[in-house]
Design a protein around this nucleic acid. Structure first.
Length: 470
RNA sequence: GGCGACGUGGCCGAGUGGUUAGGCAGCGGUCUGCAAAAUCGUUUACAGCGGUUCGAUUCCGCUCGUCGCCUCCA
């Protein structure tokens, strides 16, 4: 039984899809006016973990991730650069997909762009107006009237009366009947320059919230299973999505809302002004694989704040290196008829698997799940060390790790296939072996140093010398 | 002001009313020509103060501290 935490009810709930064994899921994607930072990427990694877990459990997942390629910042920056907005956003969209790929995030089924769905948004706004919840302000913009949607606030549990209204309300939005109302359609003004659409609603562009309601329903239907995003989206963005969609359709918009907590850097909010702002590009310079970052993300519960530090990233890097080493070692276990087959170890393998999966079924408790995996690793190593690990068991453990990597996404299989022995390395190792036999350690160390410079690390074991790439 | 989250051993980070989380780092041992890897052992954990209880890190209250949302924000 899978249970996930629902922001709306503030409780873990059993997953009950609308259609058996199928999940429609909408995940709020990037606004492409800049490169993604490691906080954004945490959200996409969480969503990837969620989809991989669902798929592992046999669900057919249809994931939609929007790309917001029209908003105030984009218009401002594109106009400043003197180029059309699609030209401005293109490199950021490309970078976004590259980032996802290097974190081994599975592609979603759909990446709809806001600018490609203006007609859908216009249609939705018309429905909202027909339902009596939309009105036109003096500036020509169309607003959603919160007063027309009594259930407003049920996701965020915010009571509008308690809000410090006005603190961040701009002067140009005084056309609204109520400060809590939000724009569905923004009428063109001079600052927008060439950026506008001529529609039945007039000349202008969509408000931010309407794209997600329109595009999610287009690809997933009026009612769908899961909607995710960062906690900052709960209010007002997701609250507004609900208001728009349910006003238009009269149906429940989303059954399960899941939100990931933010990431802190050195226990502070990440901000460019604080100088603790990282993007993925910054990591290789510091010697880390993006998969180390992935591990760091998924090993912390998605609803907890994650404190990013370089030390923690380093620990993550060492941890996955340890996993790769472990799998390589398993691969080298020889078939030895003297080693008996211990059926008890089968039970331990099975228990590790079940433990791992049941922790994930409990609202994606990856930390708990990993403990099972590491315990199995230690047990296997002990047997290996004691010389009583049967080849068949080594294969079973390896297969389990590779199987669970469908969820982890750490590319564990790469540890096995990458290193075909190259002649030169083999020759040098053989030469070093000879030197060691002759107790010519100066020569053997020289060879080891030379290989090290080539990025090859040697390990002498009782079964001979192993090597790996660093 | 309204709503909410959190404070676990050097670092990261699960969890539980009474039994070892786990990872990384450190220290000591085994193994090794030396390393590396592995392995064994090890380092007084649950912010503070009260309460409930046979027993609380785990429930309740208060205090202190950190962080978040309150209409750009993963």
């Amino acid at each position: 039984m899978i249970r996930y935490y629902n922001t709306e009810t503030r409780a873990k709930e059993e997953l009950e899809p609308i259609e058996p064994k199928k999940i429609g899921m909408y995940t709020c994607g990037p606004t492409v006016y800049d490169y993604a930072h490691i906080g954004n990427l945490r959200a996409y990694c969480f969503e990837d973990l969620l989809r991989r877990h669902l798929k592992y459990c046999g669900y057919e997942v249809t994931q939609v991730m929007n790309i917001t390629d029209i908003d105030d910042k984009i218009i401002r920056a594109a106009n400043k650069a003197g180029i059309p907005i699609d030209e401005f956003t293109a490199p950021y969209i490309e970078a976004f997909h590259r980032d996802l790929s290097s974190l081994n995030i599975e592609p979603a089924e759909f990446y709809p762009r806001a600018t490609g769905h203006i007609p859908e948004m216009v249609d939705l706004i018309k429905l909202i107006i027909d339902a009596g919840a939309g009105y036109r302000g003096d500036d020509g913009s169309i607003y959603f009237s919160i007063a027309a949607f009594p259930k407003y606030g049920r996701l965020s549990h915010i009571k509008l009366e308690g809000q410090k209204a006005g603190a961040r309300i701009k002067h140009d939005e005084y056309d609204k009947e109520s400060v809590a109302d939000f724009a569905l359609w923004k009428a063109w003004d001079e600052q927008d320059g060439d950026v506008y659409w001529e529609t039945a609603l007039g000349k202008g562009r969509p408000g931010w919230h309407i794209e997600c309601s329109a595009m999610s329903m287009k690809y997933l239907g009026e009612s769908f299973d899961i909607h995710t995003g960062g906690v900052d989206n709960i209010f007002p963005h997701h609250e507004n999505e609900i208001a728009q969609a349910e006003t238009a359709t009269g149906r429940t918009f989303v059954r399960l809302w899941m939100h990931n907590e933010h990431l802190l850097v050195d226990n502070r909010k990440m901000a460019k002004s604080l100088g603790n702002f990282y993007t993925l590009k910054d990591l290789p310079n510091k010697g880390f694989s993006p998969l180390a970052l992935r591990y760091l993300y998924i090993s912390t519960h998605y609803r907890s704040k994650l404190n990013f530090t370089l030390e923690a990233l380093q620990a993550a890097d060492k941890t996955i290196t340890g996993l790769y080493d472990f799998l390589k070692r398993l691969e080298e276990v020889k078939d030895n008829p003297d080693i008996s087959y211990d059926p008890e170890f089968d039970n331990m393998i099975e228990k590790a698997k079940q433990g791992f999966l049941s922790e994930l079924d409990d609202d994606l408790n990856m930390s708990g799940a990993l403990a099972y995996l590491f315990d199995l690793e230690t047990e296997t190593n002990k047997r290996l060390e004691a010389g009583n690990l049967n080849r068949r068991h080594a294969e079973k453990v390896r297969d389990l790790f590779l199987d669970l990597d469908r969820i982890l996404g750490l590319k564990l299989a790469d540890a096995l296939k990458s290193q075909s022995l190259e002649d030169e390395i083999e020759k040098l190792i053989a030469e070093r072996e000879q030197a060691r036999k002759n107790k010519d350690f100066a020569r053997s160390d020289e060879i080891r140093d030379r290989l090290k410079e080539m990025g090859i690390i040697l390990e002498d074991t009782s079964q001979g010398t192993r090597w790996k790439k660093r």
